[in-house]
Computed example of a mutant assay.
Amino acid sequence: MRLLCICGSLRATSTNMALLHALRDTAPPGFELAIYDGLGELPIFSPDDEGERTPPQVSRLTEAVANADGLIIACPEYAHGVPGGLKNALDWLVSGEAPIGKPAMLVHASPRSMFARAALREILKTMSLTVFDGAELEVSLIGKKPPDFEPILHDPVIRDMMRASLVEFGRFINR
């Protein structure tokens, strides 16, 4: 099971990125999680640059999405919305075939992201992704600094919860 993880934050010490790394490191056998690292390199979306003029950074994203069995998106909330960089990446994908029918799971490093969660679900469904409506993985790292991430993300209960979420998402993908 090849899953592509996308973090909506560009912050160097992102709690959402820390959560994605922990998910990757905790993945059960049979799961391969790759973390997309090009969000900040994508040019601002313009429909004029699609097709023959598609920038190579966009082609790399599209190929990564197309080759994945599913997507895992960790998204912070900025001003009650989806961060611009993530929305920009999704805009680049919206008119192509790569996301159509692709299973997607949302994971969260903050319990305070309800507006972004709702907006992101709507965006993904509009793009014809199949959003996993099972129990969302939420590991609260809000207000924590990087040294504080490790004990939380290595807690056996949290690790079991992460593995269980991946297994459930894998079942959803295989349906």
Rank of each mutant, 00 (worst) to 15 (best):
D37T: 13
P29H: 07
F45A: 03
R53K: 15
I35L: 15
L39D: 10
L20Q: 03
E52P: 09
P47Y: 08
L10C: 07
R53N: 12
D37K: 08
L42A: 11
R11H: 12
A27F: 11
T13C: 07
F45M: 00
T15Q: 14
L10Y: 06
L42Y: 03
L10W: 09
G38H: 04
T54M: 11
L10Q: 12
R24N: 10
R24H: 11
I44C: 07
L39K: 05
T26I: 02
G51I: 04
G40F: 12
M17V: 02
P29N: 05
A22F: 03
E52R: 08
I35C: 10
P56L: 14
D48E: 07
L10T: 14
Y36E: 06
I6L: 15
F31H: 09
A12F: 13
G38W: 10
L23Q: 07
I6N: 07
E52W: 09
D25N: 11
N16I: 01
A34G: 10
R11F: 14
L39S: 01
A18S: 06
M17C: 06
G30K: 03
D49N: 12
L33W: 07
T26N: 11
T54A: 10
S9N: 05
A18L: 06
E52C: 01
E50F: 10
M17G: 08
P55K: 10
F45H: 08
C7Q: 05
Y36H: 06
L33M: 14
G30R: 07
T26M: 05
A22T: 06
M17S: 14
G38E: 12
F31M: 11
L19Q: 02
P43C: 05
P56Q: 13
G40R: 04
H21V: 12
L23N: 02
F31T: 04
Y36M: 04
L33D: 01
L23P: 00
R24G: 13
E50L: 13
M17H: 15
L39Y: 04
F45N: 00
P43N: 14
C7A: 12
F45V: 00
E41T: 10
T15G: 15
S9R: 04
L23W: 06
P55S: 12
L42M: 10
N16D: 11
N16T: 01
G30T: 02
P28A: 09
L20T: 02
G40W: 13
L39Q: 06
D37G: 15
I35M: 03
D49R: 13
A22H: 02
A18Y: 05
D25V: 04
N16Y: 10
T13I: 06
A34S: 13
S46V: 01
L19W: 06
E32D: 15
S14L: 08
T26Y: 05
